[in-house]
Design a protein around this nucleic acid. Structure first.
Lengths: 194, 194, 194, 194
DNA sequence: CATGAATGAGGATTCATTCAT
DNA sequence: TATGAATGAATCCTCATTCAT
């Protein structure tokens, strides 16, 4: 049924009719209401499932025995794909997020849990970097994770059509780790200063 | 009339009725259609005006004769306030953005222009940092501006309720400029590398 | 707009669609919602208007300077016509009555007031009969009015298709006033015993 | 299965879902359709069963060897209980009555038969009164029965919350038999005229 | 016989938009 | 130019009914 999340990937909550969902899922309209109490419920279940899927991928990245740098790179790729592919879905999550807060039925809890899950998955990888001495320890891994996610979102949405060298995730990781300031000594991340 | 953007600040596009807008603006409903072709048009005009307002502020920051670092700080503060205060407005822009693309009437052009305006205002400040040698020149100022904006958005939205030291803009600027990597010489808030 | 009460005269609440009402009233569907908050509201306004109309007629009967007996007769005719013509409307009132009690907006008060109005109009005539010595004083006029209304309802609904002498209102009034018991001495109401 | 008439006692036809009925009866929803062709059929069967039950009680009253007056009193008590307890059921019968007329399947006949049954049971008792000389013979027992039922309905529905002396069935029987007119010889509860 | 998941027709309600004044 | 009453298309949701198991 969530296969009808396909619609949520490309269009917005209020642009999608349940008739459409039903038609695409090839079920009767009433059938949807057997499994979801609401249009909103359908949306949240779908969103939550998306999060879970991504978190699963992230966790797989984390457990594979590669270096921190490569792990971070792969994390970026995973998240990037998700963000780019599901822009409307994430927009919906963003905009409907607090709407969920006002609803009963434990949605609030489930929602916050998933959000924390996603951030946590990235934070875990960053925490690994702290442990290995690659990442500064003076900012919490969670906050760094949020900022990294913010940059990835920017890349996926605002810079989606930008050409050029900054397209590589390596460059993004470099910016995230070494910052925007000019460096006198060349670094190890592969982007050579002029 | 745009004073009715007050509504857009706290609620979503499809949650706002034109009756409300008209009532708040204290005009007849029909009057709106004398000045805006559409509900969507009203929205875009409002959004664009918001952008212009912010750009104006940014430009004032840029021209005042302060150091790059202070200018960047003030820029962050300006943008932050805008982001925090107008989360729903920006969400609308984000989500309705491509809708605008498909519409006629030069909206597409006007929209892209304003977006470029905002990014440009931040980019100009960053370009100043490049000129002064504070910012690495190997990534275009526009892209750096986008990322900075992304971090500011993250701070305004995702980290809105986070307590602690990362709340100061100084900390955010530090992260943006020096990066997340551990530095050999522990130097926490300075900008220039040793 | 209440001219669409015509529909309520012949069909039941849930058998009537607002499309029908709108079509018959020759207005847009939305227009109905400008004047009635609800389908239920439309129903109650209509019902109340019906009551008022009947009460108006009853009051006209009461004020005309005729004997008690003739007044009662005319009252019966008036009520009868209403009952027969608006069976579904009254059924609705009956069945939706308590529904109204649970709703806010002063509907409860308005409803009880109208009901009391109708009973009161009949009770006033009966009270006249008490004053003139025609009606027994040991039962309150209101209760007698209720029973008379009950008999009229029976006549209008259950006996609608009964042929024969009991069709005349005179006979009903006789039954109401002199009762069902056998009388030894002939009375003054015109129905002679065999 | 008709044990689910419990629902019909307190709510209206269109407020009751078959899911509810099935759940309460503790059978599958489909099972209902094995025994009833329709929701309406279920309703009529239930209503008819209610009538039969009441008629059975009435017949028991009639056959017990008590005086006419006591028999009438007990009849009133029996019917009253039924009316008060099943107001919604009778409303349904009233309002759906003609709907039954338009349906095939002999429902019309079955319905009219039961109606005649109930009236007949009361009429039989009244006919007994005619035979004993207690009841006037110039109005058919059936019609008198209808009016008596009408008064009982009024008492059960309209006067349900009325306090005071008219609450006793004796008073109602008195009104029915001796009428509302003032009597020259004040004789308040007796049945036979002097 | 019994079931209950699936169905989809049907209806109340909202709200952007128009247009006569 | 300003208005706001009128409009009706659009959509969520319910629930009687069916039918494969």
């Amino acid at each position: 049924m969530q296969a009808a999340e396909q619609l949520f990937r490309t269009r917005q909550f209020h642009e999608i009719t349940l008739d459409e969902v039903a038609r695409l899922a090839d079920v009767g309209k009433g059938t949807i209401y057997l499994y979801f109490s609401d249009k909103e419920d359908l949306f949240f279940q779908t969103a939550v499932a998306g999060f879970d899927e991504m978190c699963e991928l992230l966790r797989q990245n984390a457990t594979s025995g590669i270096t921190f740098h490569d792990g971070l790179l792969r994390t970026c790729e995973t998240v990037s794909g998700f963000f780019r592919q599901r822009r409307p879905l994430f927009l919906m999550i963003l905009s409907q997020g607090e709407r969920a807060m006002e609803r009963g039925g434990g949605l609030r809890e489930r929602w916050l849990e998933r959000r924390k899950n996603m951030t946590g998955a990235v934070a875990a990888i960053i925490a690994g970097g702290m442990a290995s001495g690659d990442i500064r320890p003076d900012i919490s891994a969670e906050i760094l994770a949020e900022y990294l996610l913010g940059m990835l979102r920017t890349r996926a949405w605002e810079l989606a059509d930008q050409p050029g060298p900054m397209r590589s995730h390596a460059a993004l990781v470099d910016l995230f780790t070494t910052g925007a300031a000019r460096r006198t000594a060349p670094e190890h991340t592969g982007i050579s200063n002029p």
